[in-house]
Structures are given as C-alpha cells and as structure tokens.
Computed example of a mutant assay.
Amino acid sequence: MIHDYFRSFNLFSEDEIEEFLKFSELRLINKNDYFIQEGELCKEVGLVKSGIFRSFYTSDEGKDMTYCFRFPNHMIAAYSSFVSGCPSKESMQAITNAELIILKKEAVDELVKNSINWTKFLKIIAEQEYLELETRFFQLQRDSAAQRYETLIKNHPDYIQNIPLQYLASYLGITQRHLSRIRKDVSF
C-alpha cells in the first residue's frame, strides 16, 4: 500500500521509497484516541493506512466543530502547527481504530535535504490541501447540507457508515435531527 501510494506521484525511485520507510514508524491509534490535540505542537505527519480521523476545533461556546475527515491514503497533520512550530488550533481524533505511518519532522527535513523529489512531494501535498480547503469553503457557501452529504457519500461510500451521526451533523453544519431527515431522503 505505501509503495503504491508513493508510486502514484511518479516522483520517487524505489530507493527513495525505501529511505522513507527507514525513517517511518507504524503507529496504532485506538478509536477515540488522538493523533494531536489542540494546544500541542505538531512535530510529525502521518499517512493513514487504515481507519478514519476527524479534525475539529472547539468553539467559543465549548462545542467541538468537525470540519474535516481523513480516510485511508490521506496525509494527516496539524499543518499550520507543523510548519510554524506554534501550538495546534485543532484536534485530530480517530473515530475508528486506525493505523498510521508516522514521519517525524526531523525525518521530513532529512528526506528533503537528500532529494528534491521530497520537496516536490510536499508542494503537491500542500497544493492538494489548499484545493481541498477551497472546495470545502465553496461547499459551505453554495451547497445545501443535503448536497454536501451526497458529495461525502459519493466520495467515500465505504466509510460513511462508520462516522457517528454527531460528527456528520457537525461537519455538515446542521443538527442531528436535520441529518436524520436528509438520510431518509438520500438512498445509498
């Protein structure tokens, strides 16, 4: 799986992928445990091998607001904290048991130093994150909650049933009651 993931970028030699694997470690995260919590420094990135994560922040009213899900073959990090060295403004929690391939910041720096391909890879990932953020912004501005729900089902049909309703409702910006009505109207 890891080899296929990195091969899909058409950047890396097999030796570069093996170098990544030497620097990386496998981490198991239990359901409801955190990859990172708000206020911590993010000093590592992960590639989701299995499981589902949610990213959320705490509102001024003390309510957690889910704004993103991470599925297998997605990178996970509190990116602004990772880049800036400032405390994270978000938490990332496993909503199922999960496996991550972890790479510490020092290892990322070493890979970048050894090969321009890792710099290119990080640029691609940053661009993908930006595009995802832009898409999410426009979804919230233009699409109804039902349309956002249908998009989530279309893009991640194998995982949607594993996301608790309160996180789905928060992600969609609606109440659980409204989500129940939408789910009745939308067929899988």
Rank of each mutant, 00 (worst) to 15 (best):
P72A: 09
N73P: 00
N73H: 09
N73R: 07
H74Q: 15
H74E: 15
H74A: 03
M75F: 10
M75C: 11
M75E: 14
M75I: 15
M75A: 04
A78G: 14
A78D: 09
Y79S: 07
Y79Q: 14
S80A: 13
S80R: 04
V83A: 13
V83E: 11
V83F: 11
V83C: 11
G85F: 04
G85W: 04
P87G: 08
P87C: 06
S88N: 04
S88G: 08
S88T: 02
S88V: 07
S88K: 03
K89H: 12
K89F: 05
E90I: 15
E90M: 11
E90V: 15
M92Q: 11
M92F: 12
Q93N: 00
Q93H: 02
A94L: 01
A94S: 13
I95G: 05
T96Y: 09
N97Y: 06
A98P: 07
E99L: 02
L100G: 04
L100I: 11
L100W: 10
L100V: 11
I101E: 13
I101Y: 14
I101H: 10
L103W: 05
L103F: 09
L103Y: 07
K104G: 07
K105W: 00
K105M: 06
K105Y: 05
K105P: 02
E106M: 08
A107D: 15
A107V: 02
V108T: 09
V108H: 06
D109V: 01
D109F: 07
D109K: 13
L111G: 04
L111W: 11
L111T: 01
V112N: 05
V112Q: 08
V112T: 12
V112L: 13
K113M: 12
N114C: 06
S115E: 04
S115W: 06
I116M: 01
I116E: 02
I116Q: 00
N117I: 01
N117F: 02
W118P: 03
W118I: 04
W118T: 00
T119L: 15
T119Q: 15
T119S: 15
K120T: 10
F121Q: 09
F121A: 10
L122I: 06
K123R: 14
I124T: 06
I125T: 09
E127P: 02
E127L: 11
Q128E: 14
E129S: 13
E129H: 11
Y130L: 13
Y130R: 02
L131S: 07
L131T: 07
L131N: 12
E132P: 00
E132W: 05
L133Y: 04
E134C: 08
T135S: 13
T135C: 02
R136Y: 09
R136G: 01
F137S: 12
F137M: 09
F138E: 01
F138L: 15
F138S: 02
Q139D: 15
Q139R: 13
L140D: 05
Q141D: 03
Q141P: 05
R142T: 15
R142Y: 10
R142Q: 13
D143F: 14
D143A: 12
S144R: 14
